[in-house]
Design a protein around this nucleic acid. Structure first.
Length: 436
RNA sequence: GUGGGUGUAGCUCAGCUGGUAGAGCUCCGGAUUGUGGUUCCGGCUGUCGCGGGUUCGAGCCCCGUCACUCACCCCA
């Protein structure tokens, strides 16, 4: 291997997605577009860079994301940050454009890169891609149930066998305050036994202790009070109705009273979907979301509730077993001889005008090399154009899957090529292995 | 940020109790002056991650460092 040169080395945690893999990305992104559009969501694209205080305010000052994972910098005196998640920017846009004046309910989805300076791991990168959506203006819980149900359908559609839904409610601010007090009261006596992280969180962010996987915390977590017991009447009614809707939709779920999130803006409904444990290892959370009824108002907007979710595309890619075609072109044009290059270019353009994908080889390579490349590109048809064919006004049309070749008049070539490309490939010759 | 594992050709990897590098795949060419995918033959690519140490001699042992990776933390 060449000596490592910083010039040709991607930044840690940021990687290239090469054309060989892009087909799978397109497949999942396409399924996501379709899923969300069927639900009446429209795509929004917000900047990758926002003012730092937007994230500090919405995500929370004491969260790990804000404390140590943001790519922040000062540009001409402005504190700016590469977005670590999508909700803050979407809500900022909602408020900035006074969208609530135009419509009572707003359904937006997005997809794109996010940035967090974490230690890279399987399905976890510093520049990573999320798909997500926000529904603003509907307090739920019908909206919540519909979103969860649709996401289960989406995951199944991209080949994730049995997604597991986990839900919880952390109520509103009053519920949370009362619960926090009770939790701190319950855990303080056993503070010495807690992990160092959890001891610190007892003061800063006690809810997060519930999420700890540290063995030292297991006992404390098991004995901790359950937030569902602290829900106020309204929160309780919201929670019960969510469960009724999910039952009506036939969406299986598990109540997980220990489910909390690392972002501070959530209220009431929280959900998480896991799956493909064998492929993802520790990071088997495919998707997470929840309600954030106070964020719009906190940012100076109207008192409008919201709910949203985000999923990591890299993880969906790992979890999904979608197979996609590796074919790059349908047709390959192979000119033989200098004088055939121009006619080959014209032929290629004519073929493309019929809607076919086509590469013209003007390297001047041998016919053998060109056919090899046609094969490697997954072309169905190779159009061979030499001086002989040019003189006769014909093209040799080779069906690479059928292993047959025919001489076709130049005027008929495009139509004939389209017909061959559209025809099913013949059965493999007997004696060859049955394909899987 | 913490802990473990791994760094040998473009890719996947072998390399014995230390004796100055190999296979398969890919790619290129030939067998077929103009016919792929199969077959046969041939060929290209390496500061063995980097730096230092031990040794007559290090891909192999020791130290450091960097990168990758897995787990923790956290999150999608």
């Amino acid at each position: 291997m060449a000596p490592p040169s910083p010039l040709v080395k991607a930044v840690k945690g940021m990687n290239d997605i090469l054309p060989a893999e892009i087909g799978r990305w397109h497949a999942i992104e396409g399924a996501f577009h379709r899923t969300m559009q069927r639900l009446g969501y429209r795509e929004i694209r917000t900047p990758y860079v926002e003012h730092t205080p937007l994230f500090v305010r919405t995500i929370g000052e004491t969260t790990d994301v804000v404390e140590k994972e943001m790519y922040s910098f000062v540009h001409h005196g402005d504190p700016l940050t590469l977005r670590p998640e999508g909700t803050a920017g979407a809500v900022r846009a909602y408020v900035e454009h006074s969208v609530h004046h135009h419509e009572p309910v707003t359904r937006w989805y997005y997809l794109g890169p996010m940035f967090r300076a974490e230690r890279p791991q399987r399905g976890r990168y510093r520049q990573f891609y999320q798909v997500g959506a926000e529904c603003l203006g509907d307090p739920g819980p019908g909206c919540d149930a519909e979103m969860i149900d649709a996401l289960v359908g989406f995951l199944r559609e991209i080949g994730i066998e049995s997604p597991d839904v986990f839900i919880n409610s952390i109520g509103g601010p009053e519920t949370r305050t009362r619960y926090k007090e009770a939790l701190v009261a319950a855990l303080t006596p056993m503070k010495d036994k807690l992990s160092p992280d959890s001891q610190r969180r007892l003061a800063t962010n006690p809810l997060r202790i519930l999420d700890s996987k540290h063995p030292a915390d297991a006992e404390a977590i098991a004995s901790a009070p359950t937030i569902l017991d602290f829900l106020g009447d309204d929160d309780r009614a919201h929670w019960d109705e969510l469960r009724r809707h999910l039952d009506a939709l036939g969406t299986p779920y598990t109540v997980d009273t220990k489910l909390v999130r690392g972002l501070d803006y959530y209220t009431r409904t929280l959900f998480e979907i896991k799956g493909a444990y064998d492929k993802l290892g520790a990071g088997s959370t495919l998707l997470g979301g929840g309600r954030y009824d106070r964020m719009v108002k906190d940012l100076g907007g109207p008192d409008v509730p919201g709910i949203g979710f985000a999923a990591g595309l890299e993880r969906l890619l790992i979890a999904s077993n979608l197979e996609v075609s590796q074919s790059v072109v349908d047709v390959f044009v192979a000119p033989i001889g200098e004088g055939t290059k121009s006619p080959a270019l014209v032929l290629g353009r004519d073929v493309r005008a019929a809607g076919l994908r086509c590469e013209v080889d003007t390297r001047g390579a041998s016919l053998k090399a060109m056919l090899r490349r046609a094969n490697a590109l997954g072309a169905r048809v190779c159009l061979i154009l030499g001086d002989r064919e040019l003189d006769e006004g014909v093209v040799e049309l080779k069906d690479l899957a059928g292993h047959v070749q025919e001489k076709v008049a130049r005027a008929d070539v495009v139509a004939r090529t389209a017909a061959v490309v559209a025809s099913p490939p013949p059965e493999p010759p007997r004696g060859s292995e049955a394909g899987q």
